[in-house]
Design a protein around this nucleic acid. Structure first.
Lengths: 138, 138
DNA sequence: TTACTTGCAAAAACTTTGCAGGCGC
DNA sequence: GCGCCTGCAAAGTTTTTGCAAGTAA
C-alpha cells in the first residue's frame, strides 16, 4: 500500500504510514475517528485532518474503498481485489471483501424493464461472520 | 402515501402534505434541502426540521427509502415496491425503483467463500436513463 | 533548500434537540 | 380544548479549509 503511494508520487511520511497501518490492522472497516485512534499508537501526534487527507489519496489510487454506514458517517476498508464489494458483520462490524458479483442477470433485467443503461453498481451485504456465529451458538 | 400516514396514527397536516408532495414530484431522489425547496411551493413556512421529521416517519412506515450519495449527504426516494432498490441516472439524478433482484446466486457464492451468513443486502445501480440517452445522441 | 505535508484552529455542511406557540381532530 | 405538530434557534457531528511550522527528498 505504501509502495503504491510512493510510486504515485506522494511522500513517505510518518503520518501516512500510521494511517495505512491503522487501516490494515482493522479487520475490515473503520471510521476516520477509529483510524485516528489506532494510528496514534504508531504516531501519537497524528491529526484527524491528516487521516481524511490520506484517505482521499488512497481512495483516488483505489487502495481503499469507502463504505456507507446507516448512522450517517462513512467508513473505510482496504481494497484487495480489483472489483470488490464488502460483506459486513452486523455484530462485530468486521468487513470482508469478496469479488465476483454476478449481477449480469439482474442488470440485464433492470435494463429491459426500466430502459436505463446501467454503467456501474454498488453492493453491500450484511450478515454474521463465522466467529460471531460460533459465539452466538453457545 | 398520506392515507398510510394517517392510518398509522399520524396527523394530516399541511407541512406533511407539502413534504409528501415534494417527494412525489421529484422524479426520483431528493435531498432534504431539495425537498424543503419544493415543499415550500406548497407551504411557504415549511421548515427543514419538519422535512427531516416527516422523512423519519415515512422511513419507518417504509413509504420512502433512504439512498446514499457519494457527496456525504443522504437522499430520499418514494418506495413503491416491497423489496426495492434504485437505479440512478448519472446525468439527471432521476431515480427509478425496480424489484426482483436475483442475488441468491451471489449471496450463496459469498456465503460459501467467506463463511458469513448473509442476512440482508443493499444495492444501487448507476447509469443513464432513457431520456438522457436520447438527449446525448443528437 | 524547496516543495510537499502536517496539525491546530476555525469554518462549513448536515442533522438533531429544546421549546414556545399553532393546528388537527 | 387537549395533545400532537411546527418552526425557529441552538447544539452536536462529521468533514473541509487556511495557515504557519515541520519534514522528506
Amino acid at each position: 500500500m505504501l509502495a503504491a503511494l510512493v510510486k504515485a508520487g506522494h511522500s513517505n511520511t510518518r503520518a501516512r504510514r500510521a494511517v495505512i497501518a491503522a487501516i490494515c490492522e482493522t479487520g475490515g472497516q473503520a471510521s476516520p475517528a477509529d483510524l485516528l485512534a489506532s494510528g496514534r499508537v504508531h504516531h501519537p501526534a497524528l491529526g484527524l485532518v491528516t487521516v481524511y487527507r490520506t484517505l482521499e489519496i488512497l481512495l483516488e489510487l483505489d487502495l481503499v474503498r469507502k463504505l456507507h454506514t446507516d448512522d450517517g458517517c462513512h467508513s473505510y476498508a482496504p481494497s484487495t481485489h480489483h472489483h470488490g464489494h464488502h460483506v459486513i458483520c452486523q455484530q462485530c462490524q468486521r468487513a470482508m471483501e469478496f469479488e465476483g458479483c454476478d449481477l449480469e442477470t439482474v442488470v440485464a433485467a433492470v435494463e429491459a424493464r426500466t430502459g436505463f443503461q446501467v454503467r456501474s453498481h454498488w453492493l453491500e451485504l450484511f450478515g454474521v461472520c463465522p466467529e460471531c456465529q460460533t459465539k452466538s451458538v453457545r
